[in-house]
């Protein structure tokens, strides 16, 4: 670790766009939260209407779709 030299020209602002290492985690978070949020809303609708999980299923699928769309928009080039 002797090669830990300070980067040249410190405290300059936004020169090169940094390679985003946290992307994978963000993508996974979008997928899971998409499913949970709209699946949860679907579950509530199920309770309200009295069905046995059809809306939860629809919600989960829609939520994953939203998650994928978000990943494309936010993380895609």
């Amino acid at each position: 670790m002797t090669g830990q030299e300070p980067p040249k020209n410190p405290s300059g602002n936004d020169d090169p766009p940094p390679p985003d290492t946290g992307m994978g985690m963000t993508a996974v978070a979008y997928l899971i939260t998409g499913m949970l949020v709209w699946g949860g809303v679907g579950l509530l609708v199920d309770h309200w209407v009295g069905t046995k999980g059809i809306f939860a299923g629809i919600g989960a699928v829609v939520g994953i779709g939203g998650g994928v769309y978000l990943i494309v928009r936010r993380l895609g080039a």
């Binding site: 670790m1 980067p7 405290s11 300059g12 090169p16």
Partner: peptide, 15 residues
């Protein structure tokens, strides 16, 4: 140096 170069600068750029 490890945290600065491999985490901070890698992910946030110069700032």
């Amino acid at each position: 140096g490890f945290v600065r170069n491999n985490i901070a600068v890698d992910m946030l750029g110069k700032r």
